[in-house]
Amino acid sequence: MAVSPPSGSAGTNDRPWWLVVLVLIALVLAGVIIANDLYAQVFTTVIKGLGVTVFVTIAGFSLATALGLGIALMGLSDSAFLRQAARFYTEVIRGIPILVLLFYIAFVGAPALVALINVLLSPLVSQGLVEPMQVRDLSLMWRAILALMIGYSAFIAEVFRAGILAVDKGQIEAAKALGLSGTQRFRLVVFPQALRTILPPLGNDFVAMVKDSSLVSVLGVADITQMGKVYASGSFRFFETYSIVAYVYLILTIGLSLLLRRLEQRLRLGRQAVE
């Protein structure tokens, strides 16, 4: 039984009025920041942490993507040991909150990593060619990046695994019939097709990491949140400070979401054109 559409034009109902409202709010807040000296001062202070936030996000996500792809390939390998190891990794890491993982990597994993590096470099250290590494040599920012890398790699591994499994088996069989090796099949046939499925959820994980990068402030890393925290604790202007912090994060996340949605639409149109 056909269901009649609601009254009014479907095109009108589908217009992104929510985006129009958000843009208007953003413009109003931008005007307040320009006109009000207090808000302008808060914004100037908070925005100093933008570079750190962007660097932590890009570095952490790039490393997490590479590690996640490796874990996904392990989970799809012919070796039962590698499959079980990949499953063990993803289940354990996904069960630990990012904040707990951040503390663990910063204060437990980092000293262990430095000790391992010193063991590997011990022949060079004994000959006086290099100095032994100290825990303080591994900055808190890089400890935070390593924690984000490990935490997100488990989720990204599942994204890659699902995308690879979604590729039509007939495509793989045809590649085998053409005599392509396993590496060639993955590089030329499987991965390009899986990428269309992988990109949308991968983009969502990137936006989520922009928000979760604020957790590095608990280690004193001077990102947007930490700069806001320091200003608010000194001025007691909590409402103004955290309003600006939320405003900056909203601009980042919504802007990225719109770009990723546009990319997803282009990929969908490209897929339809090919079909």
Rank of each mutant, 00 (worst) to 15 (best):
M1I: 14
V3C: 06
P5G: 11
P6Q: 10
S7A: 15
T12N: 07
W17T: 08
V20C: 01
V20K: 03
V23L: 15
L24E: 02
V28T: 11
A30M: 09
G31I: 07
V32G: 01
D37V: 12
D37Q: 14
V42C: 06
F43M: 11
T45F: 05
V46R: 11
L50H: 05
L50A: 15
L50M: 14
V54A: 14
V56P: 01
V56G: 01
T57D: 06
I58M: 06
I58C: 04
G60C: 10
F61K: 07
T65M: 14
L67M: 13
G68Q: 09
L69K: 05
L69S: 08
G70I: 12
I71E: 03
I71T: 04
I71L: 13
I71K: 06
L73R: 13
L76C: 10
S79I: 10
R83I: 10
R83M: 11
Q84A: 14
A86H: 03
T90G: 01
E91G: 06
I93K: 00
G95I: 05
P97G: 01
P97M: 01
I98H: 00
V100D: 05
L101I: 07
L102G: 03
Y104E: 02
A106P: 00
F107V: 07
L116N: 07
I117P: 01
N118D: 10
P123I: 12
S126V: 12
Q127G: 05
G128C: 11
L129Q: 15
L129Y: 12
Q134C: 07
D137S: 15
D137N: 15
L140I: 08
L140E: 03
A144Q: 06
A147D: 11
I150N: 00
Y152M: 12
F155R: 13
I156L: 15
F160N: 05
F160E: 02
R161N: 02
R161I: 01
A162Q: 06
A162H: 08
I164C: 09
I164M: 15
I164S: 08
L165P: 03
L165M: 14
Q171V: 12
Q171R: 07
K176M: 13
K176H: 13
A177N: 10
G179F: 15
L180I: 11
G182Y: 10
R187K: 11
V189W: 04
F191R: 05
P192E: 10
Q193P: 00
A194G: 09
A194L: 11
P200Y: 03
P201Q: 04
L202Y: 12
N204M: 05
D205V: 03
V207E: 01
V207A: 10
A208T: 12
A208G: 13
M209C: 02
K211H: 03
S213F: 05
S214A: 13
V216C: 02
V216T: 09
V218G: 00
G220I: 04
I224V: 14
T225I: 03
M227W: 07
Y231C: 00
S233H: 02
S235L: 01
S235W: 00
F238N: 08
F239Q: 10
E240I: 08
E240Y: 04
V245G: 00
V248Q: 07
Y249E: 03
I251W: 08
L252N: 02
I254Q: 12
L256T: 09
L256P: 04
S257P: 04
S257Q: 12
L258G: 04
L259R: 04
R261Y: 04
R262G: 13
R262F: 14
L263Y: 05
E264I: 09
Q265E: 11
Q265C: 04
L267K: 01
L269F: 09
G270I: 01
G270N: 09
V274I: 12
